[in-house]
Amino acid sequence: MERLPGTKVYRYAVLTRVSHWFWVIAFAALVSSGLQIFNAAPYLDASDKSNPARRVLSIDSPADGVGTTTIFGRTFTTTGWLGWTDDGMGGRTARAFPGWITIPAYQDLADGRRWHLFFAWIAASCWLAWLVSSAIKGNLREMVLRPSDLPKLWPMQAYYLRLRKEPPAHGTYNPLQKLAYTVVAFVLAPMIVLTGLALSPGIDAIAQPLTWLLGGRQFARLWHFVAMLGLLGFFVVHTFQVATQGLLNQMRSMITGWYRLGDHDGVGP
């Protein structure tokens, strides 16, 4: 299956492309509405019921005009950014996350939940549809990290850091891409779905062991937030890579499906 650099290959099926872009929209809506929901109780406890003694993160406004963020007991002044910030209506107020990053911009828990519980369906359906179709068509094989990829991880990183001239030989995706995609698709995506479900009292009544395994309801809220940070971290690295590794080729491939092979790109697992 050796292909020459410059050859165009049909890399992304319609379902992959459509679910990718729907996922982008859903993820933006979920993060923004999720921060809106967080603002209603701006703290995270590693416990079942709320317990200030096990507080991992809290965002407060100890006085008018002052915002603070406390992580593992260490308090930082975050006035203007977190705790005392943009109220979404042109003013400033005691509020954990600022209005410019929440949906709706102003504080509105009911509508934040309305957005969140709708786009959760979009994001989860896209993930499932893509996962099932890729598994059936066999494309997952070229994406999943295998034991044989492990020794290639550092050489690939060294190549990105310009400590090495050539990347290790690889197929459609390089070892670091495989690592990132595997973590997102098989760790973070299921984690964010399950931790979200565990917050529902109705689901807790149906599947008590789920909430219990996560350490309780407040702990599930903490895991949900951590999974969000993980996905956000992936988003930042992913957009950086897309932009620096041939922006037009990458964007075209996720829109039309056709990707032009680069000097080091292969095809297959």
């Binding site: 809506a29 979404g88 209005g99 410019w100 309305r114 519980l117 709708f118 959760a120 369906w121």
Partner: peptide, 23 residues
């Protein structure tokens, strides 16, 4: 742009009704 677009959509009755359908 997410927050202003989202806030504008939130004030649109048809969209607001659509996202309520998950309930």
């Amino acid at each position: 742009a997410c927050s202003p677009i989202g806030t504008a959509l939130n004030n649109n009755d048809a969209f607001h009704h659509l996202i309520g359908s998950a309930q």
